[in-house]
């Protein structure tokens, strides 16, 4: 169910990147897209009625269906990378602001 929402989120993120002219807003849209992407990845590995792929001692592990652990591992990495990108983007945004005094791309004079 949530994967449809995830796809819509990806599209919204793209829409944001396409329409917004503000540096912060664009980074924000990137984040939205990434969240959507992460949700989508998780939903790919999701098995209805499965259980979380975490080692526990209580259950007899053989008889249960796990959701696929690999996408989750991917998302963990993707989240971290996403934060890195966002941080870098914000740092650049700050540099842009100190150079032009605005976040609006349209207000910056063309070089």
């Amino acid at each position: 169910m949530l994967q449809y929402a995830a796809i819509v989120l990806i599209m919204l993120g793209l829409y944001g990147i396409l329409t917004q002219r503000n540096v912060i807003k664009i980074i924000l849209s990137l984040n939205i897209m990434e969240i959507g992407l992460n949700l989508f990845i998780i939903s790919v590995g999701y098995v209805t009625d499965g259980i979380a792929p975490i080692m526990t001692t209580n259950h007899n592990t053989n008889s249960l269906i796990y959701v696929d652990p690999l996408p989750q591992a991917l998302v963990l990495t993707a989240i971290v990378i996403g934060v890195g990108t966002t941080a870098l983007g914000l740092a650049i945004a700050k540099n842009i602001y100190s150079k032009y005094g605005t976040f609006e791309l349209d207000e910056m004079e063309e070089e």
Binding site: L2, I24, I27, L28, N31, I35, N38, L39, I42, S43, Y46, G50, I51, A52, P53, I54, V67, Q72, V75, L76, I79, V80, G82, V83, T86, A87, L90
Partner: peptide, 23 residues
């Protein structure tokens, strides 16, 4: 909901917390 508690924790801490504070 999609049975990914470790991802959820990470997202809560890093995605929600860290990113917001960065912004």
């Amino acid at each position: 909901l999609m049975k990914a508690p470790d991802v959820a924790v990470t997202e809560a801490v890093i995605g929600s917390g860290l990113v917001t504070s960065l912004f």
